[in-house]
Simulated scan of single mutants.
Amino acid sequence: MYELNVEKLKAKASEHGDTSGHAIQKTTGINQTTVYRLLRGGAQPDLITAIRLSVTYGFDLRDVFDEVDEAIEATA
């Protein structure tokens, strides 16, 4: 299982001058509520959202997702 690493995403967005959720929303066109939920760690992006982020900021999806142990996830 994989999980979005919010700090890595923020770093990639920051490289393009987007240092706030509002800036990310404006650049990507992703719904503002979705952006803030992602940045707080309250949600994981669906495939379309993840691809939109990677295309907009020019990164490979593997650059911002971390593999997590499913056994840990099951107990959380």
Rank of each mutant, 00 (worst) to 15 (best):
M1F: 10
M1T: 10
M1R: 06
Y2S: 08
Y2A: 07
Y2V: 12
Y2W: 12
L4H: 00
N5R: 07
V6E: 03
L9I: 07
A11F: 12
A11I: 12
S14V: 09
S14G: 13
E15S: 05
E15N: 11
E15M: 12
G17V: 02
D18A: 06
D18T: 04
T19D: 10
S20E: 00
S20Q: 00
S20C: 00
S20V: 01
S20H: 09
G21S: 03
A23K: 02
A23G: 03
Q25E: 06
Q25R: 03
T27K: 09
T28G: 02
G29T: 08
Y36H: 09
R37A: 08
L38P: 09
L38A: 03
L39G: 02
G42R: 11
D46G: 06
D46S: 05
A50P: 05
A50F: 05
I51R: 10
S54T: 08
S54M: 08
V55D: 11
T56K: 15
T56H: 05
T56E: 11
D60N: 14
R62W: 15
R62T: 13
V64G: 01
F65P: 02
E67L: 10
V68D: 09
V68W: 00
V68R: 14
D69Y: 14
A71Q: 08
A71K: 15
A71P: 05
A76V: 13
A76C: 06
